[in-house]
Computed example of a mutant assay.
Amino acid sequence: MTHPTALPVVPDRTAISRDRFAEATAGHQMTVLHDDGLYRHLRFRNPNRGEYWYDLITAPGTLTITGDMGDFLFRRVEDMFDFFGRRSATINGHYWAQKVIAGTPHEFDADVYKQNLTQEFFDVIDGLSHADRDDLWEAIEWQLFTAESAESAHIAMSEWDDSRMPLEDSFEIEVTSLSTTFLWCCWAIVTGIATYTDAQRR
Rank of each mutant, 00 (worst) to 15 (best):
L38I: 13
H130T: 11
H41R: 05
I193V: 15
L56R: 13
D198N: 12
D19F: 14
S158M: 08
T5N: 09
V175E: 01
N92W: 02
V100G: 08
S158Y: 08
Q98A: 06
T66W: 01
I125M: 15
T66I: 10
M69K: 14
T58F: 08
Y52G: 00
T180D: 13
Y95H: 14
I91E: 00
R43G: 04
T176E: 11
P11D: 14
D55A: 02
A110E: 13
I189M: 07
G61D: 05
D111M: 09
D111T: 15
I65Y: 03
D79V: 06
E168V: 05
G85S: 02
P47S: 07
D134P: 08
D12H: 05
T25M: 04
H154F: 15
Y54D: 03
S177W: 01
D134Q: 08
E120V: 09
S163A: 11
D109W: 06
I65V: 15
S129P: 14
I57N: 02
T197P: 06
T146G: 03
A22G: 02
D162A: 09
E51I: 08
W160N: 06
S170D: 08
I189A: 07
R49V: 10
L144R: 06
S152L: 05
M157E: 05
E107L: 08
H28W: 04
F121Q: 05
K114P: 06
I155A: 12
C186A: 07
M80H: 11
T14C: 10
A156L: 03
V112Q: 10
I101L: 04
R49M: 03
V77R: 03
H106T: 09
L178N: 04
V124H: 09
H3K: 05
T181P: 01
H28Y: 02
S177R: 03
P4K: 00
M69P: 01
T62E: 12
D111E: 15
L7S: 12
T64L: 10
T197K: 01
S170W: 08
T2L: 12
M165L: 11
V100W: 02
F21M: 11
V32C: 04
F21S: 04
A102D: 09
W96K: 13
F121M: 02
I16C: 02
I155M: 08
T58R: 04
D68H: 13
Q143D: 12
T146R: 10
D198A: 15
S17M: 07
Q29P: 02
F122M: 08
L183G: 05
T181E: 09
A153E: 02
V100Q: 06
Y95T: 15
V175T: 03
S177P: 04
D162Y: 03
L167K: 05
P8L: 07
A110Y: 09
S88A: 15
K99F: 08
L128I: 13
P60M: 10
Y54K: 03
S179V: 05
Y196T: 05
